[in-house]
Design a protein around this nucleic acid. Sequence first.
RNA 1: GGCGCGAUAGCAAAGCGGUUAUGCCGCGGCCUGCAAAGCCGUUUAGACCAGUUCGACUCUGGUUCGCGCCUCCA
Length: 457
Amino acid sequence: MLKIYNTLAREKQTFKPIVAGKVSMYVCGMTVYDFCHLGHARVMVVFDMVSRWLRASGYDVTYVRNITDIDDKIIKRANENNESIAQLTQRFIDAMDEDSARLGVIRPDIEPKATEFVEGMLSMIAALVEKGFAYPAANGDVFYAVNKFEGYGKLSGKSLEDLRAGERVEVDSFKRDPMDFVLWKAAKPGEPSWDSPWGKGRPGWHIECSAMSAHHLGQHFDIHGGGQDLQFPHHENEIAQSEAAHSHDGKSCQMVNYWMHNGFVRVDDEKMSKSLGNFFTIRTVLEQYDAEVVRFFILRAHYRSPLNYSDHHLDDAKSALTRLYTALRGVEVVDGAVDWQHPQAARFKLAMDDDFNTPEALAVLFDLANEVNRTKDVDSLHLLKGLAGVLGLLQRHPDEFLQGDVTSELDVEGLIQARLTAKKNKNFTEADAIRKQLAEAGIVLEDTPQGTTWRRA
RNA sequence: GGCGCGAUAGCAAAGCGGUUAUGCCGCGGCCUGCAAAGCCGUUUAGACCAGUUCGACUCUGGUUCGCGCCUCCA
């Protein structure tokens, strides 16, 4: 039985889908004005893992991840670059697709773009105004009146009084309450805009997710995910918008049953973020590390824990993954269904069902690798590959992983043959010299009863 | 200031009220011409102070430290 830590309840809860056998899941995706960094990689990989596990558990999953393709930063960046907004966003959507594919992320079923849903947002804003949850201001903006929504703060555990007392509440004279947030922004000269009952403008950030999730998954759906930093205000505001807009006779209806938030990627114990400037883009990291190593690195920590990024940790992950691939080397693995009756598969399932405990699930993989290395047991071998596949790992040919990123000018096979000849002639000095030469090129030789193989260091 | 999360061996990271986590690194052994890989064994744990308990890394309270949200953020 799957248990999920629900931010809304602040505890693990048994997962019960709204419709038996089906799961509707919405995850907040990227604002596409720059390359994705490792923090984005974590969201993509974590919720990819979640959707894979739900599917492996037999659920029919509809996974929606949005693309924010209109906002202040996009407009600013497009102006700076002297390119159109459409050009800019498409460029970074393509880059994002490329990065996520390399990380082994299966594309979400639906990837709606904000600009394609402005109409839906406008009708939702209209409903909010009509029901008294929102008001047009004198400057042409439309604001959400937080004090009209009873449950405001229930996700993030904040109270309006505490929020108002905070030091960093923005002052905006057009708001009735400093905590009110914008649903519709009046267009400034030169900005892209859409017509609306309140004049030309563009949507606020939060409304897009409310409109798109309702359109694709309905007013009430199972799982909503995103980074921890979206908990407040973004997700709090989504709830306020959706539950108020969809309310009937003054009774609000629940938007989401399970809220999931993944932890941050950190650098030197600080959150990796754009504003701090301490971010590493996915593509930069992939210049140095195999994408599967990065995926493994992410899944190695529990999704809610902080994850420190450093070369040392990536090196460590690489060594660990090498161990798993080494166990698969030189043996035929026919892909087949996982036998969930197997004790180790049962252990894996128990771990994954416990709020997606991937570190424990990976420990099962290592125990299986040990079993394979010891006994060459075929069931363990298939299970190792099968279970790893559920996590999107270990699906390449071992040699591709173990030898893949070596680009050597040397004739590796020729040198291996020369060394074997030298060995046969007991000329160990020569044999060791060849091995040293290869080692300096980053190639490690391994003599086995079946012959000599090599891998990159 | 308000709210929340965390502190596990050299590094990373889980479960668990009593029994080997796991990976990397180190050490010893087996294997090997020597290595590598693998196998076997092994050294390093549970921030601090109380309490509950026959027994706590695991539960409770406090202290200290770290991090996050309260502003755009995955």
